[in-house]
């Protein structure tokens, strides 16, 4: 049982790291702001999400696990909002509408 949990955690955290890596590579290599934003949201959502998913079984207590999920939700929510605002600014024509 513990081995399976450990394995699950390890895989999830590694996957998370890979998404962070993808986000960074995208941020550095993609040609313009909008595509970079796309890469960034990947790291925010999936990278952190997978790492937290991997940590959940290790967190020890229910309240800690709850806080971890909350952390993910907050970053998700804020990231999405910031992304929308940023996208609005980055659009070549200006402010849409």
């Amino acid at each position: 049982m513990t081995t399976i949990v450990t394995l699950f955690s390890a895989v999830a955290i590694c996957a998370g790291i890979i998404f962070f890596l993808a986000g960074t590579v995208g941020l550095l290599r993609f040609p313009d702001s909008l595509t970079r934003l796309h890469a960034l949201t990947k790291a925010d959502n999936l990278g952190l999400g997978l790492i937290i998913l991997g940590l959940l079984p290790l967190s020890g207590s229910f309240s800690t696990a709850l806080k971890l999920v909350l952390i993910w939700a907050l970053v998700q929510l804020a990231g999405a909002t910031a992304a929308q605002l940023i996208a609005r600014l980055a659009r070549p024509s200006g402010r849409g509408k």
């Binding site: 929510l77 999405a80 909002t81 609005r88």
Partner: peptide, 15 residues
């Protein structure tokens, strides 16, 4: 109103 901002506020502020 900046699109998502009021919604974001309503969600985030209570938390």
């Amino acid at each position: 109103s900046f699109g998502p901002l009021p919604l974001f506020g309503r969600l985030l502020i209570p938390i």
